[in-house]
Design a protein around this nucleic acid. Structure first.
Lengths: 199, 199
DNA sequence: TCGCTTGTTGACACCGTGCCAACAAGGCGA
DNA sequence: TCGCCTTGTTGGCACGGTGTCAACAAGCGA
């Protein structure tokens, strides 16, 4: 233990909250939602269990903040994409996506898939927002900024393809990065040229 | 109550098990995994709660059987796909997929997305098997029966695209069936002609 | 009608969660 | 330095859900 256990110490609310949150991110990233109890989080943080509820309310509320952290991605360098022709821009956005998802693959890829188990409404909403953000990045990268809801929906579908393909690469290890890149670039080019136009 | 409540009746083990399972499928389809207790299942089935554990063991085991039922799809008429050129066969497999997923959309689409929440290993395995089956259907439909693990992985990725796109159609209602069909057909054609070949 | 097989029940103990009053750490004024 | 007061922190309480198991009874055969 790096911190002095067994001694009661007061922390600023923001510091304590962030400390518990970081511990929760680690635990929920390692194990599943059901396998991590609030007692585990409290013990790993060296804190009474009641304090977790005091700062985060419900366990589900804590989990919501956790996946919010996991899905928070450095939005930098999106606007700095090249202005070449369409295949060049597509290559850039695909490379950027693969860089991001491979950097913190375990947390991001796990969180983006955390929808299920019957699908809690709040969790689905947070994940949907992350997918929306990624879809917006795709649309802006291919130069379809002012686009209708159908294009947004198709972009979200493409993000679903990107996620499932990245999982075959990073989690299953059966695809190489080059294969994933080629698949995502070719399909995105097809979608932009042949499918996005009809809406 | 159609069945006589308050009266104790003996059923054959298979019949009782199937009755409880059908009730559980309905409840888990309506509400989420966490929102359905084994008490709810037992009460809806007019049965003591202990009997649910007697037949299915753990609540998670029951849920595994539930999603197994939800993901069970009439595999008929897959072999009866036409032998035309590639676009024709792709149209056929896409139409077949959209028919299947729209027929029992709520259960199948909900179950195929039930992976997350940190990802229970057993549940992930059942879902992965369903995705594998769908991917095999795609590969046979496009005439790539004897294909390597890379092609299988890409087919699974395509199933991920199909699932996310179908969700935009059936759950969000922002895409029409024609749009979904065009998107899935065009992308599958691109993948077969340009991406599957390099592996 | 009796007895036996076994489908079925109810209760028990355990665990995780949310809540709350009580406690004390640590800064402030005297 | 001492006492007080704010408030971060704790431990215990009650509740609901789960898994298990001995006891019960439904229904068939003798």
């Amino acid at each position: 233990m790096s911190v002095e256990a067994g001694q009661r110490r007061r922390l600023e609310p923001d510091a304590r909250r962030e400390q518990i949150l970081s511990v929760a991110v680690r635990l929920f990233g390692e194990r599943g939602y059901a396998d991590v109890s609030t007692t585990d989080v409290a013990r790993a943080a060296g804190v009474a269990r009641g304090l977790v509820n005091h700062y985060f309310g419900t366990k589900k509320d804590l989990y919501l903040d956790v996946i919010r952290v996991m899905l928070t991605v450095p939005e930098v360098a999106i606007a700095g994409l090249p202005d070449g022709d369409l295949p060049t821009r597509i290559d850039a956005i695909v490379s950027w996506f693969l860089d991001v998802v491979s950097r913190h693959s375990r947390s991001w890829l796990a969180a983006i898939t955390a929808g299920g188990m019957g699908g809690d409404a709040d969790i689905d909403r947070v994940i949907a927002e992350a997918i929306d953000a990624a879809a917006d990045s795709v649309l802006t990268a291919v130069g379809l900024t002012g686009s209708g809801p159908a294009q947004h929906a198709m972009a979200r579908s493409y993000v679903g393809l990107a996620v499932s393909t990245a999982r075959e690469w990073l989690q299953r290890g059966v695809l190489t990065r080059a294969q994933v890149h080629r698949l995502l670039a070719a399909t995105l080019l097809t979608m932009v040229e042949q499918v996005f136009t009809d809406a």
